[in-house]
Nucleic acid binder design. Structure first.
Length: 570
RNA sequence: CGGGGCGUAGCGCAGCCUGGUAGCGCACCUCGUUCGGGACGAGGGAGUCGGAGGUUCAAAUCCUCUCGCCCCGACCA
């Protein structure tokens, strides 16, 4: 392709509405253009990148025996009622939905579990057809509460979604492992630094899940990685080894002490000269369920933090939020800052983190303004709480699997794999007959990759002050042959011949035959980010051109034109 | 949804407080010079100042409503 034939339009200044480097660069270099919040046009060069990512995805999924297909974007409400997700998605406000001329309700697909399950239930009746895996690459629509960062969190975006169907859990494990393998290869081939981490399955549900995170400082997710490589997890899910709290000794009689205006753990540490690890703080939450809202109390060791995702799972609700002041006062009968397990209204369910299990003689609040209790013992002074893992693991704590310690990094979630089990097949009655003629629900897995997000994450990980540095496997072109002065026939001839030679050898090259001053051309090509550059300039007539890698702009070498192919292929 | 900010030429911005001929830089077009790291000169085109209503002799500017976009938070398969 000749760049003169592509309407390339680059900007000299950063767009005012972009925040992170990859977003600024993709807009500045003209790869994407915003049409509305979270909705982007992919220009010709961006589309080349997206096609390359898609091709890698297809090749690796096909290698594992998955089958590409295509499902409708427009989906009827009925199937979403069958799975029970219509109201949930409407309530969350992320579903684009509409009515047709006959008043039937439809939505633009945010995901395709319902469609695939409906499709498969009609075509699959027997265990003999199992297992199989179906996937598509298609635009998805989610009315994100806050679209952000260009393609990172768009309202329309390109996604690969795959669904596996097995007869039993062992089969699902194999299908899941196959996708796990494929995902590792896909992101390696894309040239990305990534980490596969244990993840919370969230609203999609299911028994196991991993996220594939591209490591980047501006990533939206925090992840914890073992420094010896034995564990990696999203903080939403992560576990860790923590230092045990000092032994509280044999149970002592309960004492109540006046603590005027002492409300926080830090203040209590000073007041009682007692380490936070010997205290239990009590935090009140409102847990949201489909049909009601309930106040729950969470007890956590004083020096540790609550993980709200774990809490949502523990209460089996839709969401949790910190209780407001009025609620705190109502259920504790005290000012904010004095909540405790003693004296709470009876209807409040009390959860306690595992770190408190077996601890004695705790310092806690007791639902009385300006008082705290010492030597509190669970089961004696208040009903035994429900012990659960509710703790947010933190950087510096021990790896749960080895003696290493955890390091916190930030990541961009580019892929997510789930073991769904029968979450959709049971309510939607997607069943098959097993060897004994017995009807069983299909055991499903689902596997997503954000294609457009992956492309942007590559930029977030590969840029410098001059612009983008595409990883070679997904660059819009691997090599640019830049004719410095298209008015000089020797340069045009040498450049064109070289370009054609590279193309003939299967190298994805483009020819920059645009007429612009050398300085402008160099800056423009740096911004666009082609990984390899061959400049055909003043020594063209001698058969000498300049070769350089975008990543190492300083290292330029003058080489004979007939050695370029070898250099590019090495 | 709560808090904050911004809508003026394709892009980035000034002008608004204190009402009175709509500006700057980049980009774009023409001509000339220049041209291996975002050149220079001369000339030129391009804006219903987001929209509606109001106040006023007069509104980009003041008032009301509305739409859009961005940031923080909440939220987020």
């Amino acid at each position: 392709m000749r760049l003169s034939q592509i309407p390339i339009f680059t900007l000299r200044e950063d767009p005012s509405d972009a925040e992170i480097p990859s977003h600024k660069l993709l807009v500045r270099a003209g790869y994407i253009q915003k049409l509305a919040s979270g909705i982007y046009v992919y220009g010709p060069l961006m589309w080349r990148v997206l096609k390359k990512v898609s091709t890698i995805v297809r090749e690796e999924l096909d290698r594992e025996g998955a089958n590409e297909m295509l499902m409708p974007i427009l989906q009827p409400r009925e199937i979403w009622d069958e799975s029970g997700r219509w109201n949930r998605y409407i309530a969350d406000g992320i579903l684009f939905h509409l009515g047709d001329s006959k008043q039937a309700e439809l939505c633009l697909g945010p995901t395709h579990e319902e469609v695939i399950t409906t499709y498969v239930k009609r075509i699959c009746n027997s265990y003999k057809q199992l297992p199989f895996n179906l996937y598509q690459i298609q635009d998805k629509f989610r009315d994100e509460i806050r679209p952000r960062f260009g393609l990172m969190r768009g309202r329309e975006f390109i996604m690969k979604d795959a669904y596996s169907f097995d007869a039993d859990d062992a089969g699902l494990d194999r299908s899941y492992d196959a996708m796990n393998r494929a995902y590792h290869k896909i992101f390696e081939r894309c040239g990305l630094e990534f980490s596969a981490v244990d993840a919370d399955a969230g609203a999609i549900g299911g028994s196991g899940s991993q996220e594939f995170m591209v490591i980047a400082d501006k990533g939206e997710d925090a992840i914890l990685i073992c420094d010896r490589g034995n564990y990696a997890a999203n903080v939403e899910k992560a576990d860790s080894r923590i230092t045990p709290s000092p032994d509280g000794g044999a149970a002592q009689p309960l004492r109540k002490e006046s603590t005027p205006d002492i409300r926080t753990v830090e203040q209590l540490e000073g007041f009682f000269k007692m380490p936070a690890a010997r205290m239990a703080k009590t935090v009140l939450y409102e847990a949201v369920f489909p049909d009601h809202v309930e106040t729950v109390a969470v007890m956590m060791r004083g020096d540790l933090e609550i993980n709200e995702v774990k809490l949502v799972n523990a209460v089996d609700g839709l969401a949790v939020r910190l209780a407001d002041e009025a609620t705190v006062k109502r259920v504790t009968g005290a000012e904010v800052g004095f909540a405790g397990p003693i004296g709470l209204k009876e209807e409040v369910r009390v959860f306690a983190d595992l770190s408190l299990q077996g601890m004695t003689n705790l310092l806690t609040g007791c639902c009385e303004t300006d008082f705290h209790c010492l030597d509190v013992n669970p089961g004696r002074d208040f009903p035994m709480p429900e012990f659960r893992d509710l703790r947010r693991a933190r950087s510096g704590e021990g790896c749960p699997r080895c003696d290493g310690s955890l390091i916190e990094k930030r990541g961009i979630e580019v892929g997510h794999i789930f073991k769904l089990g029968t979450k959709y097949s049971v309510p939607m009655e997607a069943t098959f007959l097993d060897q004994n003629g017995k009807r069983k629900p299909l055991v499903m897995g689902c596997y997503g990759i954000g294609i457009s997000r992956t492309a942007q994450s590559a930029v977030e990980q590969n840029y410098d002050e001059n612009g983008i540095i595409w990883p070679r496997p997904i660059a819009p072109f691997e090599v640019v042959v830049a004719v410095l002065d298209p008015k000089k026939s020797d340069q045009v001839e040498v450049g064109t011949r070289l370009y054609e030679q590279l193309r003939a050898a299967g190298v994805d090259a483009c020819l920059d035959d645009r007429a612009m001053s050398p300085g402008v051309k160099f800056k423009d090509l740096d911004l666009l980010g082609f990984p390899l550059r061959v400049v055909v300039g003043r020594r063209a007539s001698e058969g000498i051109v300049e070769f350089s890698e975008r990543r190492k702009s300083e290292e330029k070498s003058e080489i004979a034109v007939d050695t370029v192919l070898a250099r590019v292929s090495s």
